[in-house]
Amino acid sequence: MTLEKLKKHFPWITLLTLVVFVGALDSNFLRPENLLQLAGDISTLFVMALGITFVIYLGGIDLSAQSVANMTTVLATLMLPIFGASTAVICVLIGALFGFVSGFVSTKLKVPSFIATLAVGGIALSVGQFASGQRALYMDAVLRDQSFSWLTGNIGGIPREMIIALVLLVGALILERRTTIGRAFKAIGAGELAAVASGLRVGRYKMAAFAISGAFAATAGLLFAVKLSGGSPEMANGFLLPAIVAVLVGGTPLTGGVGGVLNTLIGALIVAVIRTSMLYLEIPATAQQIFFGVVLIAAIAFTIDRGKVRTVK
């Protein structure tokens, strides 16, 4: 096998190497229940990263995901007593709406997506703060269990959260590989001008990508709210950058057109392994950030397929 062919396998080779490496240092790490927990812990972040993948795949960026998730925790908590289980649907729709607005601002008003999503994130943050009255809110335990018992607990030792994440992954995978939207995304990401010249309505698809990202971010927020049984406009803080990192490390570069949702799964797992390994390697708390940053540089340096990234800017 040539290096050229090997390149696209770099992300999961990186993941495997990391797992084996940490496992060699501490065999406890490789215990199934530990690996399972590791995967379970990353579920929410992974769901957010899934959505962002679509936007990055088209060459944009979504910085509003975290704020949308935050807002959703608040809205879900507030709506639960009124709407019951349909809260979930409403939340996802609201998320999609915010994503759509980002997409509109970025494609129609031609504001770079970096700024557009940041600004829309600000709006989401305000909504969250306003709705919550800047307090942490709590869900009624009975109501929560009535409506969302399917989101909590375990099935056969596997956390439900993780199952949901996997279902969403499969959904995203079908969207990416089997639908016209997914095909259009691929065309736009890999050759936007050719997509235009083929008569695709590129602007609409771009807005759709942002809307999908918003919907996934809201789903992540919903999972959060149910898991922690409440909502606050700061609940998902600290998730945005790791989620973006998961997408990038997985091998979907910012220039778009390469990678996809399966890559993001691997990326999210790499992020999870790096984080968890710090416990096993007994890295002191104060040094963990440095460790994370340095390993990240190493992982990215190894993972990205530079042949497909046109210019290294």
Binding site: V245, L248, Q289, I290, K313
Partner: peptide, 18 residues
């Protein structure tokens, strides 16, 4: 390392905070 600046600097940001 020929890492795009977005990712390189993001990682270096983590290192700095750390």
């Amino acid at each position: 390392l020929r890492i795009p600046s977005f990712m390189a600097s993001l990682s270096m940001g983590f290192v700095g905070i750390g």
